[in-house]
């Protein structure tokens, strides 16, 4: 467990929680990233402005963090192109079919004590762990 970073993880989580609180207090919306993005792909988009602004902030934040903190450790994306495409398709489709992802169900839904979100979070955590178990320990990737 030498990779465990509890303090930065907890306070990073607090910032994510504050983001959810800010969006609810100001716009009355749930900050679920798949819902915010998916709303832009609906047949009638009437509220693109705040959705695009949220996404812009999300993309700009690590660069802002790097500018203030003097850099951000590099991230490791080692998957092949085929795997990236397959995973992206599953994540996008699954998040919309299941009405949420790690943020909408895992953070906002659990904070609201929504039974649907507890079930969804349990299912995607289990599916994610099972997938990593198969790819790393059964197939030995």
């Amino acid at each position: 467990m030498e990779n465990f970073t509890p303090v930065s993880a907890f306070f990073g989580g607090v910032l994510i929680g504050l983001s959810v609180v800010v969006l609810l207090l100001t716009n009355g919306r749930i900050a679920g990233v798949s819902g915010v993005v998916g709303g832009l792909l609906a047949s009638k988009v009437r509220d693109a402005g705040w959705r695009l602004a949220f996404i812009l902030g999300l993309i700009a934040a690590p660069l802002l963090y790097a500018a203030v903190a003097g850099g951000v450790p590099p991230i490791a994306v080692t998957s092949s192109t085929g795997l990236l495409i397959a995973a992206g398709l599953l994540v996008g489709f699954g998040a919309r079919l299941g009405s949420g992802c790690t943020s909408g169900h895992g953070v906002a839904g659990i904070a609201r004590l929504s039974p649907r979100s507890f079930v969804a979070t349990g299912v995607f955590l289990t599916a994610g762990m099972a997938t990593v178990f198969v790819t790393r320990h059964v197939m030995g990737g």
Partner: peptide
Amino acid sequence: GAAIFGVGWGL
């Protein structure tokens, strides 16, 4: 939906 999402997340 959550199961499909979880598999993609884990990949």
